[in-house]
Nucleic acid binder design. Structure first.
Lengths: 356, 356
DNA sequence: CCAGGTGATGAAAGCGCTTACTGTGATGGC
DNA sequence: GCCATCACAGTAAGCGCTTTCATCACCTGG
């Protein structure tokens, strides 16, 4: 209720210096302990700091020393567990060297990706981590690369996480073995006897979508299992897309004994759609996702999926950005996924007439 | 592979001025369009900016104008959907006025809360939003209040979100009607005939824990339903705690027809534990949570819970912080929850011997 | 007793911007 | 036709720090 008068100016380093009876330079030296200072002087300074409740001005410091505490993270949507998991990895790592993590939600819009990058450059971000939303529109990519190069030229660091490298930009990338993961999943299904497998891809034009689908498709081909075009639908990486596309499949009377979705969120939607249609998972239809979000253990039924080391990826990217980890040869490190078998996959129901 | 030479210095406003043949002041004026500039001059400047690929130095600007673009958010854990939902609300709102959101993970440790607040003060954060982890240790609270006052004195703004106000600090709070929500849940259960209801509280010493439990307890009392002490256990706000405590209840042979947990994460754990024991939900035991995380619709079975407007709370807090929303009388706005009935609650099984 | 260290401190020049405060010509009222 | 007015543009003084360079007292060996 009390609306206090707002103090316009705050305590400065000069004030501390005056109070301690030393020069500003000395105060700076004890603050950063960047140079030997005698114990008695140091004491006087720290006491003055405490008495005056001095808090250094980060902007002034950043300006004078041209260093920055901020690490930018550009992400599709923090509230998506896929990203929030990565962000946590980054945050934990950044905290180690006292950096501040600013998160930028692009909501999948390339334009925002660009404008956030610009904002981050204005703040002279120490480093920025670009994750998700790897739209492969060439124009956008070119602009992104341009911004990336600008950032690097300013002395910042750029690391990609979960997306491929940018053309002509010297930035390392942490990626996932999407192809291998999807292959493993496909193999699992084929080995159990599935022959008609539906696949719900992510949004078109995204690298992740392409890699996962390719891994799936190629594995089927290798096993001699045909992939029916009418069983492949695409949509967003969302639960809603999974739900809608599964309903579309069902409405079209498509026949399949397994359904693979490009990520877990879509799988949850698929499970819901199947349940509504009274189709039992896994006895009538098997379902599998990708990512292994924490919630997979609690879905109905618990979801078979491919686990991606999300937090670890974030942490690794952050370490790369901090220069605390050597950049691997070729500039990209690929993290392997792992097939996690739970309860949504079973043998296909044995049917009277063999369908293929 | 190409390790380019890192440019030590970047283009400054003075460079732009020189190129455009005007004074730095003029450049600044067109950049911020803070003062009328003739069209032709403006053109020359913008052209120079583009040609030189000039990007303003945010630190210099912040120092000179004593303004800041950063909004700090102090949170328990970004990867927890409860918080990430709030963060998204904040982020979206902050993006409106071009602010950068820095997120600080305390992992529930009061010490980090404090050190992040300090860091944020160093950065002269425009505002900070404090959410979660409302440990009510008096010493911690006092230090927090101290920091909060310091922030305010520096001209920053402080808003609490999902936690009660700080003593002697003039900061508004956005809170949830925990008491009312828990009451509604209790009433629902009682009306269906439940008489032996177990309750898993959150961590002791947290306001949220206390409020939710009080709402529950008082509603039972009002309905004349006894609350058996052996049916109340407490633990963290985590799935693991829900799982463990439910198992403990079961192991102790406790008898209950309904189980209420202080949040959804715990409820998911409870459902898993019940399932492992072959107990059917909701036919043998009813379960209810609190928060209404997005996953509630996909759990097995879909969870009956109390919906909290998380994203909205974050957005509101952000608007309050930005001064874009008037601070309500009393400084606190309480957002109501809403009972969401799904599939985990049913009438209690009718038993031969009525137990109470 | 003094040249040459050595170790702690101070003076001052920025870092890149904003923003009073001053100048200007060009206008317009009388 | 002259001076107040106006609309821009420039000058320069910071904002609060870091950091180079100079200073100064004091010590050590010859």
């Amino acid at each position: 209720m009390t609306s206090r008068q707002r103090a316009a100016t705050s305590v400065t380093l000069a004030d501390v210096a005056a109070r301690a009876g030393v020069s500003p330079a000395t105060v700076s030296r004890v603050l950063n302990d960047s140079y030997p200072v005698s114990a008695s002087t140091r004491d006087r300074v720290t006491r003055a700091v405490r008495e005056l409740k001095y808090v250094v001005n980060g902007h002034a410091r950043a300006l004078a020393a041209s260093t920055s505490m901020v690490v930018g993270v550009i992400v599709n949507d923090v509230s998506d567990p896929f990203f929030s998991q990565i962000v946590r990895g980054i945050q934990t790592e950044a905290a180690h060297d006292g950096k501040l993590v600013v998160i930028c939600n692009t909501e999948g819009e390339p334009a925002r990706e660009l404008s956030y990058l610009e904002l981050l450059r204005q703040q002279r971000a120490h480093s920025v981590l670009l994750t998700g939303a790897a739209v492969d529109d060439p124009v956008h990519l070119a602009e992104l690369a341009e911004q990336g190069r600008g950032l690097l030229a300013q002395g910042g660091r750029l690391v990609l996480c979960g997306r491929p490298r940018l053309p002509d930009v010297d930035a390392p990338a942490v990626t996932f073995a999407n192809h291998a993961g999807a292959s493993a999943l496909a193999r699992h299904l084929v080995e159990l006897g599935h022959r008609r497998i539906a696949y719900l891809t992510g949004p078109l034009g995204r690298t992740t979508t392409a890699e996962r689908f390719a891994g799936f498709r190629e594995q089927l081909a290798a096993a001699g299992v045909p992939l029916a075009p009418e069983l492949v639908l695409s949509g967003g990486f969302t639960r809603a897309a999974g739900y809608d596309n599964t309903r579309a499949l069902l409405a079209a009377g498509a026949e399949f004994t397994a359904l693979v979705t490009a990520n877990d969120a879509m799988a949850f939607g698929a499970l819901a759609a199947l349940r509504e249609h009274g189709i039992d998972v896994p006895d009538q239809v098997s379902v599998a996702g990708f990512d292994d979000l924490p919630f997979c253990v609690d879905s109905a039924p618990p979801l078979t999926t491919v686990r991606l080391p999300l937090t670890e990826a974030g942490a690794l990217a952050a370490r790369l950005a901090a220069g605390r980890e050597p950049v691997p040869f070729g500039g990209v490190v690929t993290l392997q996924g792992e097939l996690v078998v739970r309860r949504t996959v079973n043998r296909p129901p044995s049917q009277p007439g063999g369908q293929r």
